[in-house]
Amino acid sequence: MGSITCLGIVLLVLMMIVGGKQGVTSFLSMVVNFGILFFSIVLIAFHTPPIIVTVVASVILLSITIFWSSASDNASTTAFQASCVILILLIVIIIPIEYWAQVGGFGLEDSEELEGLSTYIGIDFTKIAIATAILSSLGAIAEAAIAIASGLDEILTQHDKIRSGELFADGVFIGKQIIGTAVNTLFFGFFGSSLALFIWFYGLNYSLGEILNDKVFAAELIAIVVSLIGVVLTIPITTWMMSFRLKKVQDKTMNK
């Protein structure tokens, strides 16, 4: 048995112990997400436009992550709508930044690994960098949107007469509580995954200027900061979505 299979079984068993049926669903969501991610790469390899593939895949990935979580119907619908809006905003930010910084492709640090590989594959790596940045932010957006939407939904079930203005204040309050730790999740994730790169920089005496302008580092950094922006934007946008829904429901009951 391979290590990946064995770790997968350990994880599945633990998730079943903690979450029962919900645990199995959460595990499956990761497996299906992997399938979609891999399928997207294969599609891109067949020259399907990378950004279109990424956007379609992102919407599906977000819906799986959000609707297969245990959030209530109201919360997950709001979280999904909000994260789609954030996805659009992030794309608007990412595309010009990636073309400005031109971080697509590989850096000098990758030379050894590229040995024997043909890099002239006719697919624009700047677009692949855009896809990478979008995809790496999805999990963080989904998680933040679910957390805020669930919190607000909880408040709604307890005070169904709440005004949408008050709800907004509550949303920002919940957001302030989750943001500190959500940012940590992101930063440690990225610190961990680029540990080898940082050791490389230090070992080879890169100056601050060299690091800041390094292609590989810049690509990583753009992905982190974009995810961070996504998480911060989740707070007002999820709250707006929720108060908008609330207003619609309240208007309906008033008219009756």
Binding site: M15, V18, G19, G20, Q22, G23, T25, S26, S29, M30, N33, F34, L37, L61, T65, I66, W68, S69, S70, A71, T132, A133, L135, S136, S137, L138, G139, A140, A142, E143, I146, A147, S150, T185, L186, G189, F190, S193, A223, S227
Partner: peptide, 17 residues
């Protein structure tokens, strides 16, 4: 139970993308 799924996905996307 309700937060572990989305949280695992956060790291999954960072590591895989």
């Amino acid at each position: 139970k309700s937060i572990m799924g989305p949280l695992i996905n956060v790291l999954f996307f960072i590591f895989m993308a």
